[in-house]
Design a protein around this nucleic acid. Structure first.
Length: 390
DNA sequence: GAATCGTGGGA
DNA sequence: TTCCCAAGATT
C-alpha cells in the first residue's frame, strides 16, 4: 500500500438532485424531438437497428475535436478498407496513418491501430461492452467510453462532450467558466442516465447541441426544452457557457527543404519520430521549428540535406496554424543529379526516419499531413507545376 | 494539472 | 484578419 497522502477520492461534484419528474419530462421531450429530427449520419444505424460497436467506436475516435463534415469521408474510407476491427488490426500501421493524413491529432490514429490490435488479440475481436472495459483501451477516455457503451451497448450512461457541456450549462444556467465548470457539468449530465433508450438519448443531446443549442445564436424557440431552460428564462443562453480567456499563440519559424531527384522528379521524404507533433507521419526535411526571429539563410542551410550549396529560396511564406502555435515556413528547393542523389542516399543510409525517395505519383499514398502538403504545394508553385498529383 | 496535440470552416 | 471552435485523450 502506498503511504502518505491517501489517494484523493475522486468524488463527483455535489449538485442539487434533479427532480425525477422533471428529468423524465425533459428526457421524453428530447427523445421525441430526436425521433422527429434525427440526423442521418454515415455511422448511425437505422432506427431500431442494432449499432455496430466497431463503427460506433471508429466514428467516435474520428469525431474527437473534429467536425462531422471532416470526419465523414474518412469514416467511409476506413470502413470500406477495413470493414471489421480484425481487418484494421491486421493492417499495417503505416497504411492506417497514411489514410488518416489530413484529419489531424495523429495520436488518435496511432491509438486507433493499437486499440484494434488489443480488441482483436485480447478480446476475441469484440469490443468490451462496459464503460470500464472500454476505458481500458488505448485512445478511449471518459467521453468515448460512455459514448460507445451507451450507443453500441445500451448502457445507461451519459457521454459528456462539448455539446452536452453547453446544453447543460444553459439548462441549469451554470455561470462558472469552462474548463472549471467541467466537473459540475458532468455531474449534471450524469443525472440523466437512464435505462430507457440510453444510446438515443446520448445522440439526442449531441444533436441538440449541434443543431439548436449552438454556441452562437441558439434557436431556443425551436428547442424541445423551451420553457424549461434556466438560461432561456434569464435571457442569457447566448452567453453560456462562459470561457476563460485563452493565451495568445506564439509563432515558430522553419525552413523546409524540398529535394527533388532530377531524373524522375522523386521527392525526398522521411518518417517523423513516433512521439510528439505529427508523430509517425511523413515529412519533408527542415530546420527545427523555433520561436523568435525567422531563420537566417546561412543558419538554415546548415540543416540542409547533403550540402548547403545549390538551394534556391522560393518566394513567399507558408503559414499553418496549430492548436498552440503558428508556423511560418520558408521553402528551399534543390534538384539533384544522379551522382548527387546517390551521394545523399549514402550520406543518410541508416538514419532514423527512413529517408527515402517518393515518386510523384506515390505522394498521395504517402499520406502527408496538411502542413507538409502545403509545403510541397508551395514548392510546386515554385517550380511552375502546381496541381500535380498529391 | 497544465500542456500538448491538427485541421478546416464559419462568423 | 482573426478568432472561435468541433462527438477529447494523454502525459
Amino acid at each position: 500500500m502506498p503511504r502518505g497522502r491517501p489517494a484523493k477520492p475522486k468524488l463527483a461534484i455535489a449538485v442539487p438532485a434533479i427532480d425525477p419528474d422533471r428529468r423524465d419530462r425533459l428526457r421524453l421531450a428530447l427523445l421525441d424531438w430526436y425521433d422527429r429530427h434525427r440526423r442521418v449520419l454515415p455511422w448511425r444505424a437505422e432506427p431500431g437497428r442494432p449499432a455496430d460497436p466497431y463503427a460506433v467506436w471508429l466514428s467516435e475516435i474520428m469525431l474527437q475535436q473534429t467536425t462531422v463534415a471532416a470526419a465523414g469521408p474518412y469514416f467511409r474510407a476506413f470502413l470500406d478498407l477495413w470493414p471489421r476491427v480484425t481487418d484494421l488490426a491486421a493492417a499495417r500501421r503505416e497504411a492506417v496513418l497514411a489514410r488518416w493524413a489530413g484529419l489531424g491529432y495523429y495520436a488518435r490514429a496511432r491509438n486507433l491501430h493499437a486499440c484494434a490490435e488489443v480488441v482483436a488479440d485480447r478480446h476475441g475481436g469484440r469490443f468490451p461492452d462496459t464503460e470500464a472495459g472500454l476505458l481500458d483501451l488505448p485512445g478511449i477516455g471518459a467521453y468515448t467510453a460512455a459514448a460507445v457503451a451507451s450507443i453500441a451497448f445500451d448502457r445507461p450512461t451519459v457521454p459528456v462532450d462539448g455539446n452536452v457541456e453547453r446544453v447543460c450549462a444553459r439548462l441549469f444556467a451554470i455561470a462558472t467558466p469552462l474548463p472549471d465548470a467541467k466537473p459540475e457539468l458532468r455531474a449534471r449530465a450524469a443525472q440523466f442516465a437512464h435505462d430507457h433508450r440510453p444510446g438515443d438519448f446520448a445522440q439526442a443531446m449531441m444533436d441538440l447541441g449541434a443543431t439548436l443549442c449552438t454556441p452562437r445564436r441558439p434557436a431556443c424557440h425551436r428547442c424541445p426544452w423551451s420553457g424549461d431552460c434556466a438560461a432561456e428564462a434569464a435571457g442569457i443562453a447566448d452567453t453560456l457557457p462562459a470561457r476563460l480567456p485563452k493565451g495568445d499563440r506564439p509563432v515558430r519559424h522553419a525552413v523546409a527543404f524540398i529535394t527533388l531527384r532530377a531524373a524522375d522528379g522523386a521527392m525526398r521524404i522521411r518518417t517523423r519520430p513516433d512521439a510528439g507533433l505529427l508523430g509517425g507521419m511523413t515529412e519533408v526535411p527542415g530546420t527545427p521549428w523555433e520561436e523568435g526571429a525567422p531563420w537566417d539563410q546561412a543558419a538554415a542551410l546548415a540543416h540542409a540535406p547533403l550540402s548547403p550549396q545549390g538551394w534556391r529560396l522560393l518566394p513567399g511564406v507558408v503559414v499553418h496554424v496549430f492548436t498552440h502555435f503558428r508556423l511560418e515556413a520558408r521553402v528551399m528547393l534543390r534538384h539533384l543529379d544522379r551522382a548527387e542523389a546517390a551521394a545523399l542516399d549514402a550520406a543518410e543510409a541508416g538514419e532514423t526516419g527512413d529517408p527515402r525517395w517518393c515518386p510523384p505519383q506515390d505522394l498521395g499514398r504517402a499520406g502527408l499531413p496538411s502542413v507538409m502538403a502545403k509545403l510541397v504545394e508551395h514548392a510546386r508553385i515554385g517550380t511552375g507545376q502546381p496541381g500535380l498529383p498529391l
